[in-house]
């Protein structure tokens, strides 16, 4: 960006050590590091998908899936998608120092993410609602709760991330040149959405539906 680094560089104060990276170089490394982290997480979710395709299977019929209510799953998938849209909008706003749009978009991202989380816990897990599947329902229950649970943990950390970035944006900590915090939050949040893009068909759509008896 600018040739004179010390303008925004309160990290290193008065003197920049020539051996240490500048803020701009650091952001480039941060970006690559975060992507590597996402790539690493791909293996985690791939292992869960592998478990799903390995266990939810019948030698004669092929792939199976638990018979779960379809409408809420579709609705919450769309809610997560909307939150992803607002996250993107917030990132564009931060890059243009458009504080009002940033605020509204971060708030929407957070609320949509929260709706998704609560929706999964209440309607899908049946906590305080009608139960369709239990953790003890054979391989269906085990893998279903492992997949949605691991995803939910990432949604929770993502929500914390969104909340922190939202607050720091309000404090005016991001500029046109340096809004790495917002970009990192966006990459992470979209990654959580990306995982759900694969989990949604794997859990709800692929394979023959089998009804689970619940007493």
């Amino acid at each position: 960006m600018s040739a004179v680094a010390h303008g925004h560089d309160d990290h290193h104060g008065e003197l920049h050590n020539p051996m240490e990276p500048t803020r701009q170089e650091q952001i480039v490394m941060n970006r690559f590091g975060l992507w590597l982290f996402c790539f690493s997480e791909v293996f985690l979710f791939a292992a869960l998908l592998a478990a799903r395709f390995y266990l939810w299977r019948d030698p004669d019929v092929g792939a199976l899936r638990p018979d779960l209510p379809q409408a809420p799953a579709l609705i919450f998938t769309c809610v997560l998608l909307v939150s992803s849209f607002f996250m993107n909008r917030a990132e564009v706003a931060a890059a243009n120092e458009d504080r009002a749009t940033f605020n509204f978009s971060m708030a929407s991202t957070f609320v949509m993410g929260l709706i998704f989380l609560v929706g999964v816990i209440v309607l899908e897990w049946g906590v305080g609602g009608e139960t369709h599947i239990l953790p003890t329902s054979g391989a269906f229950g085990a893998v279903f709760f492992a997949m949605t649970g691991m995803h939910a943990i990432h949604v929770i950390t993502g929500l914390i991330f969104v909340a922190i970035v939202w607050r720091n944006g309000n404090l005016g900590n991001y500029s046109r040149e340096d809004h790495w915090g917002v970009e990192a939050c966006a990459i992470y949040w979209h990654f959580v959405d990306l995982v759900w893009i694969f989990f949604y068909p794997a859990i709800y759509l692929i394979g023959l539906a089998v009804h689970i008896p619940i007493h």
């Binding site: 054979g138 085990a142 492992a146 689970i212 007493h215």
Partner: peptide
């Protein structure tokens, strides 16, 4: 938590309904 990933034994009612067991 009693989640069955790895035990090939299953509750008979679940087995009859066609729910897969662990492996």
């Amino acid at each position: 938590l009693g989640m069955n990933f790895f035990t090939p034994i299953l509750d008979p009612e679940l087995l009859a309904a066609g729910v897969p067991a662990g492996d």
